[in-house]
Amino acid sequence: MAKSALLKSSIAKKYWMALTGLFLCLFLAGHLAGNLQLLVPNNALNFNQYALFMTSNPAVKLLSYLTYISILFHAIDGILLTIQNKKARPIGYAKTDGSSSSFASRNMAVLGTIILVFIATHMVNFWAKMHFDKNMPLMTKTIEVQGNKQVFYVGTQVGQYFPVEQVAKEGEKLEQGMMPKQFVIKNKTELHYSQADVKTADLYKDLYKITLDFFKDAKYGLYFTIGYVLAMLALAFHLWHGFQSAFQSLGANSSKLTPAIKFFGKAFAIVVPLLFAIIPVILHFKK
């Protein structure tokens, strides 16, 4: 009895919704810390180093799987709850007055759906490119060499620079010009000697450039930026109710505790989405 109750009952669903929701709040804080690095001027190297760490560190990987599971669970649980709740009132009221509850609390499912759609497009635009795109650009740096500007690929070790014209892309023919190219890229980011199959360096995927290009896109950049800001607005409303609601669901409600939770939740709901949203706005309008 007790075991099945912890999975099926209406209260158990609250616990799961609350736990996954609070975990996703932690994820938001972490993600925001990463994004804010985009605002530091000329920060491509640091940002791409951070991106590499976030996609290769085993502990981060574990957290990322937890995040995927939480998003799915939170969304599926939310959809099931919404369907059940609609069924609980088969005939609606002819006249309703919304004054006894907040806009956010009444529209969590709609707000959640907007956020879910945003997450899906966001993952297609950035996450999928970072993980799976064969044409994901690699980080380059323009350095002045004896008065001439030259473009180099940047290796993950300090001081590793490889002239772009000496590097053949994956699948590209080596002998296009007079001389065969010295290096060839394999497995998306590995730099190998072209003549001997020896890896000489790892290169950075240029997530920094992808992000800037996305929001600076001449044709669609403005729409992407507006879409992003609107999604953050939905997130703000979702958190406005969701944050303090999670504590209530877990039974943490007392006259001492609740005012502090509500205050922190509302601050979190304003500050986090606002900081998320100003990043693409700045990137878009920055020359």
Partner: peptide, 10 residues
């Protein structure tokens, strides 16, 4: 057949 609470506070 009652619905689930979503803490709206109404």
């Amino acid at each position: 057949g009652f619905g689930n609470c979503t803490n709206t506070g109404a």
